[in-house]
Design a protein around this nucleic acid. Sequence first.
RNA 1: GGUCCUAUCGUCUAGCGGUCUAGGACGAAGCCCUCUCAAGGCUUAAACCUCGGUUCGAGUCCGAGUAGGAUCACCA
Length: 553
Amino acid sequence: MADNNDLAELLFPDVTLTIDDLEKKYPLRNLPEGAQVTRFAPSPTGFLHTGSLFTAMISRTVAKTTGGVYFFRLEDTDTKRTIEGSGDLLLEQLHQFGIDADEGYTPNGDVGAYGPYKQSERKEIYRAVIKELIRRGRAYPDFCTPEDLDKIRASQEANKVLPGYYGIYARDRNLSVEQRIEKIKAGTPWVIRFKSMGDHDKKTKFTDAIRGEIELQDNDTDVVILKSDGLPTYHFAHVCDDHFMRTTMITRGEEWIPSTPIHLDMFRALGWKAPKYAHIPSIMKLDHGNKRKLSKRKDAEAAVSYFLESGYPAQSLLVYLMSIANSNFEEWAIANKTFDLSKFQFKIKKMSLDGALFDIDKLNYFSKEIIARMPLEELFAAVKEYASAHDAEFAARIGKNPEFVKKILNIERDRKNPRKDYAKFSDIYPLTKFFYADLWEEIIKKPLPFKESIDKATVKEILLASASEMVFGVDEYTWFSGVKALGEKFGFASSNKDYKEHPENYKGSVSDTAEILRVAITGSTQSPNLHEILEILGKEETSRRLTKVAESL
RNA sequence: GGUCCUAUCGUCUAGCGGUCUAGGACGAAGCCCUCUCAAGGCUUAAACCUCGGUUCGAGUCCGAGUAGGAUCACCA
């Protein structure tokens, strides 16, 4: 009489590794009480998704705040969807956000003692565990073809019962060992399925680190654990890998909640202690009045690269995501006048339970705040890096005269409440083009927005007078006194108050005097502090601009 | 359809049976400041999904309904 041992040997004759060997090879981690081992385990199927970045950030933060370990594992078991090089790209994008792993897969080889960290290199481990499962009668070969499975499903649908491979619908579950051996010897293709002992009418409970107690129907389907290509399915790989990598907390998207009973079922069958689970809510987007998960295909902001290419500092996105993750973060950040995420005490229990709608306004708010408070040199370096990657024209200007650009970036920056003009690096160049002489020439080719109510002759006189009399190298107060005095000469009130009280006595107020200068210098009625702009431009260029505009009137 | 998750201002949320005529932040509106803008300061509008129950008392506990979301593969 053949038994399961014979079946296991027939299926995996070359496997000599045992679960015991693996337990010894991957010892329990020596970590302090409460330290969590977390991981980020993406499939190399494309770019880094914003939701993935969110999950990775939380995983890493949990490990860091508890004194644990955060590692990176590549789940490349779906050979059809795998995109070459995408694993390395994912790692690179994570790195740009400072989410670097303590151990795991890297393009230059694994780092850490619990590898391999790439699932396609872990076949021997999966096969060893499965061989043992077969011996114990908790896994079996299934010979159904896709067509067979379709038929089963169709009949289930016709009879209005739950679809799936379970109970009486699990066709090959109760084959005798002899029948199995016979089919294998005949060369019938097979997959390995887990033999569930679950009862659909019973419940399994588990405590989610975010949601608390969750009660679900017991798993009773015999899921595929080893595919016909010899690679494991997610369900099995998760159980195996996270056990031997000694993960203590599984941080993953909430879409995994319904399949958690499958995982728990397997942990039980293997006699392994199940890890904690923390199911992270998805980031949503409003689409025609309906909430839906941020979609990589439909939403630009679903790809993390979008933010980087738009010129958001990596920290801005991270800070925004953290504000969604822990609502007390914002309060903390304001109180501590810092957006240093590493100093924030993240609490996974404080995570909200439903998916947040992605809010670009809030991102912009944080980003303006962050850019405004960046030290000048840091800002300059970041802008330079951004421009060289995404804006060749701006990059050339930076290269040509870095000091000039620094001065522009520094306008109204050195103070308690710095200017907040820029939410992203790409906002900078368009708003500062007027500084460059050649671009200014382009700007003034279009009609300048001088106030209609002030006659051109007066405007011209003011510009000409300013061109020769404007003082440089003095403080703002002195400079502005000069502007007032000059305006007064041509009939403009030196204070808005005077003008408001007796508008009939004046052609306009200081505001108008200043606006005339501003329009000539910048081509716009709006700009940052004029005094600072003029100091950057210098006496010569200022006079040139004022004269040129005056002569064109 | 089955199962599960979720439900407070437009958005993110605080709230863990009386302190809630519901607080904050973003966004919006207004005012102030001011040479414009960006800021900054002040102010305003803006929410407990519905119905039952428990209780002296419910945004807070329970149930149902409703709505939104997730999931039911040899994908993860």
